[in-house]
Protein backbone atom coordinates (compact mmCIF):
# COMPACT_ATOMS: atom_id res chain seq x y z
CA UNK A 1 0.00 0.00 0.00
CA UNK A 2 2.69 2.44 1.06
CA UNK A 3 4.66 1.47 -2.03
CA UNK A 4 1.66 2.34 -4.20
CA UNK A 5 1.36 5.73 -2.52
CA UNK A 6 5.03 6.49 -3.11
CA UNK A 7 4.63 5.32 -6.70
CA UNK A 8 1.74 7.74 -7.19
CA UNK A 9 3.65 10.54 -5.53
CA UNK A 10 6.75 10.04 -7.68
CA UNK A 11 4.65 9.66 -10.82
CA UNK A 12 2.81 12.90 -10.15
CA UNK A 13 5.61 15.06 -8.76
CA UNK A 14 8.86 14.01 -10.40
CA UNK A 15 8.14 14.54 -14.17
CA UNK A 16 8.72 18.31 -14.48
CA UNK A 17 12.04 17.98 -12.67
CA UNK A 18 13.30 15.67 -15.44
CA UNK A 19 12.64 18.40 -17.98
CA UNK A 20 14.41 20.85 -15.68
CA UNK A 21 17.51 18.63 -15.66
CA UNK A 22 17.46 18.29 -19.44
CA UNK A 23 17.18 22.05 -19.88
CA UNK A 24 19.94 22.71 -17.36
CA UNK A 25 22.26 20.25 -19.08
CA UNK A 26 21.64 21.85 -22.43
CA UNK A 27 22.23 25.29 -20.98
CA UNK A 28 25.52 24.24 -19.42
CA UNK A 29 26.67 22.77 -22.73
CA UNK A 30 25.79 26.02 -24.45
CA UNK A 31 27.68 28.01 -21.85
CA UNK A 32 24.55 29.61 -20.36
CA UNK A 33 23.42 29.53 -16.79
CA UNK A 34 19.98 28.28 -17.81
CA UNK A 35 16.62 28.35 -16.06
CA UNK A 36 16.33 27.05 -12.50
CA UNK A 37 15.74 23.35 -12.13
CA UNK A 38 12.20 23.94 -10.93
CA UNK A 39 11.30 26.30 -13.78
CA UNK A 40 8.97 23.78 -15.44
CA UNK A 41 6.90 23.56 -12.23
CA UNK A 42 6.54 27.36 -12.24
CA UNK A 43 5.58 27.35 -15.91
CA UNK A 44 2.93 24.70 -15.49
CA UNK A 45 1.38 26.24 -12.40
CA UNK A 46 1.26 29.61 -14.13
CA UNK A 47 -0.38 28.11 -17.21
CA UNK A 48 -2.96 26.36 -15.07
CA UNK A 49 -3.96 29.68 -13.51
CA UNK A 50 -4.34 31.47 -16.83
CA UNK A 51 -7.52 32.05 -18.81
CA UNK A 52 -8.66 29.91 -21.68
CA UNK A 53 -8.49 31.02 -25.30
CA UNK A 54 -10.03 28.77 -27.91
CA UNK A 55 -10.07 28.93 -31.66
CA UNK A 56 -13.51 29.43 -33.09
CA UNK A 57 -13.12 26.46 -35.42
CA UNK A 58 -12.61 24.01 -32.60
CA UNK A 59 -15.03 21.59 -30.97
CA UNK A 60 -15.00 19.41 -27.88
CA UNK A 61 -12.31 17.27 -29.51
CA UNK A 62 -9.83 20.10 -29.09
CA UNK A 63 -10.49 20.29 -25.36
CA UNK A 64 -10.63 16.51 -24.96
CA UNK A 65 -7.18 16.11 -26.54
CA UNK A 66 -5.00 17.18 -23.60
CA UNK A 67 -7.36 15.67 -21.04
CA UNK A 68 -7.51 12.19 -22.54
CA UNK A 69 -3.78 12.30 -23.22
CA UNK A 70 -2.96 13.07 -19.60
CA UNK A 71 -5.42 10.44 -18.35
CA UNK A 72 -4.00 7.69 -20.50
CA UNK A 73 -0.37 8.57 -19.78
CA UNK A 74 -1.13 8.59 -16.05
CA UNK A 75 -2.75 5.16 -16.30
CA UNK A 76 0.22 3.89 -18.29
CA UNK A 77 2.34 5.16 -15.42
CA UNK A 78 0.56 2.79 -13.08
CA UNK A 79 1.57 -0.19 -15.22
CA UNK A 80 5.35 0.38 -15.12
CA UNK A 81 7.50 -0.31 -12.08
CA UNK A 82 9.25 2.81 -10.83
CA UNK A 83 11.17 2.43 -7.57
CA UNK A 84 9.85 -0.88 -6.37
CA UNK A 85 10.15 -3.86 -8.71
CA UNK A 86 6.36 -4.28 -8.73
CA UNK A 87 4.01 -1.90 -10.48
CA UNK A 88 0.79 -0.98 -8.66
CA UNK A 89 -1.21 -2.67 -11.40
CA UNK A 90 0.23 -5.81 -12.94
CA UNK A 91 -1.34 -8.61 -14.91
CA UNK A 92 -0.38 -10.91 -17.77
CA UNK A 93 -0.55 -8.83 -20.91
CA UNK A 94 -0.30 -5.40 -19.27
CA UNK A 95 2.45 -4.38 -21.69
CA UNK A 96 -0.11 -4.46 -24.50
CA UNK A 97 -2.42 -2.20 -22.54
CA UNK A 98 0.59 0.04 -21.90
CA UNK A 99 1.40 0.37 -25.60
CA UNK A 100 -2.22 0.97 -26.54
CA UNK A 101 -2.70 3.61 -23.84
CA UNK A 102 0.10 5.55 -25.48
CA UNK A 103 -1.77 4.97 -28.75
CA UNK A 104 -4.92 6.44 -27.25
CA UNK A 105 -2.94 9.50 -26.19
CA UNK A 106 -1.60 9.84 -29.72
CA UNK A 107 -5.05 9.52 -31.27
CA UNK A 108 -6.45 12.36 -29.22
CA UNK A 109 -3.41 14.63 -29.47
CA UNK A 110 -3.38 14.39 -33.25
CA UNK A 111 -7.15 14.68 -33.62
CA UNK A 112 -7.15 17.78 -31.42
CA UNK A 113 -4.43 19.27 -33.61
CA UNK A 114 -6.48 18.71 -36.75
CA UNK A 115 -9.46 20.34 -35.06
CA UNK A 116 -7.88 23.77 -35.38
CA UNK A 117 -7.87 23.67 -39.16
CA UNK A 118 -4.36 25.09 -39.27
CA UNK A 119 -1.66 24.06 -41.70
CA UNK A 120 1.11 23.70 -39.12
CA UNK A 121 -0.87 21.53 -36.78
CA UNK A 122 -1.93 19.23 -39.59
CA UNK A 123 1.74 18.94 -40.51
CA UNK A 124 2.73 18.07 -36.97
CA UNK A 125 0.07 15.46 -36.51
CA UNK A 126 0.77 13.85 -39.89
CA UNK A 127 4.40 13.43 -38.86
CA UNK A 128 3.52 12.14 -35.42
CA UNK A 129 1.34 9.32 -36.76
CA UNK A 130 3.80 8.51 -39.52
CA UNK A 131 6.74 8.00 -37.21
CA UNK A 132 4.67 6.01 -34.74
CA UNK A 133 4.15 3.39 -37.46
CA UNK A 134 7.82 2.48 -37.03
CA UNK A 135 8.34 2.99 -33.31
CA UNK A 136 5.29 0.94 -32.31
CA UNK A 137 6.47 -2.35 -33.86
CA UNK A 138 9.95 -1.68 -32.44
CA UNK A 139 8.45 -1.44 -28.98
CA UNK A 140 6.71 -4.76 -29.51
CA UNK A 141 10.01 -6.39 -30.49
CA UNK A 142 11.37 -5.16 -27.15
CA UNK A 143 8.42 -6.79 -25.40
CA UNK A 144 8.92 -10.02 -27.34
CA UNK A 145 12.59 -10.22 -26.44
CA UNK A 146 11.91 -9.55 -22.76
CA UNK A 147 8.98 -11.97 -22.64
CA UNK A 148 11.16 -14.63 -24.23
CA UNK A 149 13.91 -14.09 -21.70
CA UNK A 150 11.82 -13.82 -18.53
CA UNK A 151 8.87 -16.01 -19.39
CA UNK A 152 6.49 -13.40 -18.09
CA UNK A 153 3.88 -11.24 -19.79
CA UNK A 154 3.83 -8.50 -17.18
CA UNK A 155 5.91 -5.33 -17.47
CA UNK A 156 7.22 -5.50 -13.93
CA UNK A 157 8.68 -8.95 -14.34
CA UNK A 158 9.78 -8.35 -17.92
CA UNK A 159 11.83 -5.29 -17.03
CA UNK A 160 13.57 -7.30 -14.34
CA UNK A 161 15.16 -9.36 -17.13
CA UNK A 162 18.71 -8.25 -16.45
CA UNK A 163 18.49 -8.90 -12.71
CA UNK A 164 18.13 -12.60 -13.48
CA UNK A 165 21.33 -14.67 -13.12
CA UNK A 166 23.74 -13.62 -15.86
CA UNK A 167 23.42 -15.53 -19.09
CA UNK A 168 25.83 -14.96 -21.92
CA UNK A 169 23.12 -15.59 -24.48
CA UNK A 170 21.18 -12.61 -23.22
CA UNK A 171 24.08 -10.12 -23.17
CA UNK A 172 24.09 -9.17 -26.86
CA UNK A 173 20.28 -9.01 -27.21
CA UNK A 174 20.12 -6.84 -24.11
CA UNK A 175 22.51 -4.31 -25.59
CA UNK A 176 20.60 -4.21 -28.87
CA UNK A 177 17.24 -3.90 -27.18
CA UNK A 178 18.40 -1.12 -24.87
CA UNK A 179 19.85 0.87 -27.77
CA UNK A 180 16.65 0.48 -29.73
CA UNK A 181 14.57 1.40 -26.71
CA UNK A 182 16.62 4.56 -26.18
CA UNK A 183 15.88 5.68 -29.74
CA UNK A 184 12.18 4.90 -29.24
CA UNK A 185 12.16 7.03 -26.10
CA UNK A 186 13.77 9.94 -27.92
CA UNK A 187 11.24 9.66 -30.74
CA UNK A 188 8.19 9.22 -28.53
CA UNK A 189 9.07 12.13 -26.29
CA UNK A 190 9.91 14.35 -29.27
CA UNK A 191 13.55 14.97 -28.53
CA UNK A 192 16.53 15.69 -30.76
CA UNK A 193 17.45 14.02 -33.16
CA UNK A 194 13.81 13.40 -34.10
CA UNK A 195 12.17 16.61 -33.02
CA UNK A 196 13.34 19.84 -31.38
CA UNK A 197 11.27 20.76 -28.34
CA UNK A 198 12.73 24.24 -27.91
CA UNK A 199 11.30 25.94 -30.95
CA UNK A 200 7.93 25.76 -32.59
CA UNK A 201 8.00 28.42 -35.24
CA UNK A 202 9.56 26.20 -37.82
CA UNK A 203 8.05 23.96 -40.40
CA UNK A 204 10.04 21.04 -39.15
CA UNK A 205 8.51 20.46 -35.75
CA UNK A 206 6.29 17.63 -34.64
CA UNK A 207 4.99 17.85 -31.11
CA UNK A 208 5.32 21.59 -30.70
CA UNK A 209 3.58 22.15 -34.01
CA UNK A 210 0.60 20.10 -32.89
CA UNK A 211 -0.01 22.20 -29.78
CA UNK A 212 0.41 25.66 -31.33
CA UNK A 213 -3.17 26.68 -30.64
CA UNK A 214 -3.50 25.24 -27.16
CA UNK A 215 -3.09 27.81 -24.42
CA UNK A 216 -3.59 28.40 -20.72
CA UNK A 217 -4.64 25.38 -18.65
CA UNK A 218 -4.86 23.14 -21.72
CA UNK A 219 -1.25 23.88 -22.57
CA UNK A 220 -0.32 23.31 -18.94
CA UNK A 221 -1.96 19.89 -19.03
CA UNK A 222 -0.11 19.07 -22.24
CA UNK A 223 3.27 20.09 -20.82
CA UNK A 224 2.66 18.12 -17.67
CA UNK A 225 1.44 15.09 -19.65
CA UNK A 226 4.47 15.06 -21.91
CA UNK A 227 6.80 15.33 -18.92
CA UNK A 228 5.00 12.39 -17.36
CA UNK A 229 5.34 10.44 -20.59
CA UNK A 230 9.08 11.07 -20.43
CA UNK A 231 9.24 9.60 -16.92
CA UNK A 232 7.11 6.60 -17.86
CA UNK A 233 9.19 5.77 -20.92
CA UNK A 234 12.47 6.38 -19.10
CA UNK A 235 11.45 3.89 -16.43
CA UNK A 236 11.23 1.21 -19.13
CA UNK A 237 14.91 1.59 -19.81
CA UNK A 238 16.23 2.22 -16.29
CA UNK A 239 15.60 -1.17 -14.78
CA UNK A 240 17.12 -2.89 -17.79
CA UNK A 241 20.30 -0.85 -17.80
CA UNK A 242 21.06 -0.73 -14.08
CA UNK A 243 19.56 -3.77 -12.38
CA UNK A 244 20.91 -2.90 -8.95
CA UNK A 245 18.75 -3.83 -5.97
CA UNK A 246 18.91 -2.56 -2.39
CA UNK A 247 17.83 -3.90 0.96
CA UNK A 248 15.74 -0.95 1.97
CA UNK A 249 12.75 0.22 -0.04
CA UNK A 250 13.67 3.86 0.60
CA UNK A 251 17.10 3.36 -0.85
CA UNK A 252 15.53 1.80 -3.92
CA UNK A 253 13.26 4.78 -4.46
CA UNK A 254 16.15 7.17 -3.97
CA UNK A 255 18.23 5.20 -6.40
CA UNK A 256 15.40 5.23 -8.93
CA UNK A 257 15.00 9.00 -8.76
CA UNK A 258 18.75 9.46 -9.13
CA UNK A 259 18.75 7.11 -12.12
CA UNK A 260 15.87 8.96 -13.78
CA UNK A 261 17.63 12.28 -13.34
CA UNK A 262 20.84 10.78 -14.70
CA UNK A 263 19.04 9.51 -17.79
CA UNK A 264 17.56 12.97 -18.26
CA UNK A 265 21.06 14.40 -18.16
CA UNK A 266 22.06 11.82 -20.78
CA UNK A 267 19.17 12.94 -22.97
CA UNK A 268 20.31 16.52 -22.46
CA UNK A 269 23.81 15.55 -23.57
CA UNK A 270 22.45 13.85 -26.68
CA UNK A 271 20.39 16.94 -27.43
CA UNK A 272 23.44 19.18 -27.01
CA UNK A 273 25.90 17.27 -29.13
CA UNK A 274 23.61 16.22 -31.94
CA UNK A 275 21.75 18.13 -34.59
CA UNK A 276 18.18 17.37 -35.44
CA UNK A 277 17.87 15.03 -38.39
CA UNK A 278 16.22 16.16 -41.57
CA UNK A 279 12.59 15.05 -41.56
CA UNK A 280 13.02 12.57 -44.35
CA UNK A 281 15.93 10.97 -42.48
CA UNK A 282 13.87 10.26 -39.36
CA UNK A 283 12.26 7.10 -40.77
CA UNK A 284 15.74 5.68 -41.33
CA UNK A 285 16.63 6.27 -37.69
CA UNK A 286 13.42 4.61 -36.55
CA UNK A 287 13.87 1.72 -38.97
CA UNK A 288 17.30 1.34 -37.40
CA UNK A 289 15.70 1.10 -33.97
CA UNK A 290 13.21 -1.42 -35.33
CA UNK A 291 16.02 -3.54 -36.74
CA UNK A 292 18.02 -3.33 -33.50
CA UNK A 293 15.09 -4.54 -31.43
CA UNK A 294 14.18 -7.14 -34.02
CA UNK A 295 17.72 -8.53 -34.11
CA UNK A 296 17.70 -8.62 -30.33
CA UNK A 297 14.69 -10.89 -30.44
CA UNK A 298 16.04 -13.03 -33.26
CA UNK A 299 19.32 -13.55 -31.39
CA UNK A 300 17.33 -14.86 -28.45
CA UNK A 301 15.38 -17.43 -30.40
CA UNK A 302 17.80 -18.51 -33.11
Amino acid sequence: MIQTLIHLLVLLVLPPLLLGFINKTKALFAGRRGPPLLQVYFDISKLLRKGLVLSETTTWVFRAGPIVTLASVALAGLLVPLGSPLAPVAFAGDMILFAYLLGLARFFTTAAALDTGSAFEGMGSAREVTFACLSEPALFFVFLALAKQTGSLSLGAMLGASSLPFSAAFAAPLVLVCLGLFVIILAETCRIPVDDPTTHLELTMIHEAMILDHGGPLLGIIEYGSAMKLLVLESLLLRLVLPLRFESAWLEWGFFVAQALLLSVAIGVVESIMARLRMRRVPYLLTGALLLCGSGFVLLVR
Binding site: T57, T59, V61, A99, Y100, G103, R106, F107, T110, A111, L114, D115, T116, G117, G122, S125, A126, V129, T130, A132, C133, L134, E136, P137, A138, L139, F140, F141, F143, L144, G294
Partner: peptide, 27 residues
Protein backbone atom coordinates in the same frame (compact mmCIF):
# COMPACT_ATOMS: atom_id res chain seq x y z
CA UNK B 1 3.16 -11.53 -36.01
CA UNK B 2 2.88 -9.35 -32.87
CA UNK B 3 4.99 -6.44 -34.20
CA UNK B 4 3.11 -6.75 -37.48
CA UNK B 5 -0.17 -6.40 -35.64
CA UNK B 6 1.31 -3.43 -33.75
CA UNK B 7 2.25 -1.82 -37.06
CA UNK B 8 -1.26 -2.46 -38.40
CA UNK B 9 -2.61 -0.75 -35.29
CA UNK B 10 -0.38 2.30 -35.72
CA UNK B 11 -1.26 2.57 -39.42
CA UNK B 12 -4.97 2.24 -38.67
CA UNK B 13 -4.62 5.01 -36.14
CA UNK B 14 -2.98 7.22 -38.76
CA UNK B 15 -5.74 6.39 -41.20
CA UNK B 16 -8.58 7.18 -38.85
CA UNK B 17 -7.05 10.36 -37.55
CA UNK B 18 -6.84 11.32 -41.20
CA UNK B 19 -10.43 10.30 -41.96
CA UNK B 20 -12.06 11.89 -38.96
CA UNK B 21 -9.81 14.92 -39.16
CA UNK B 22 -10.40 15.55 -42.83
CA UNK B 23 -14.13 14.90 -42.79
CA UNK B 24 -15.32 16.12 -39.41
CA UNK B 25 -12.72 18.44 -37.84
CA UNK B 26 -11.28 21.75 -38.90
CA UNK B 27 -12.99 24.16 -41.27
Amino acid sequence: AAPILAMIGALALACFVKASGAAFLGV
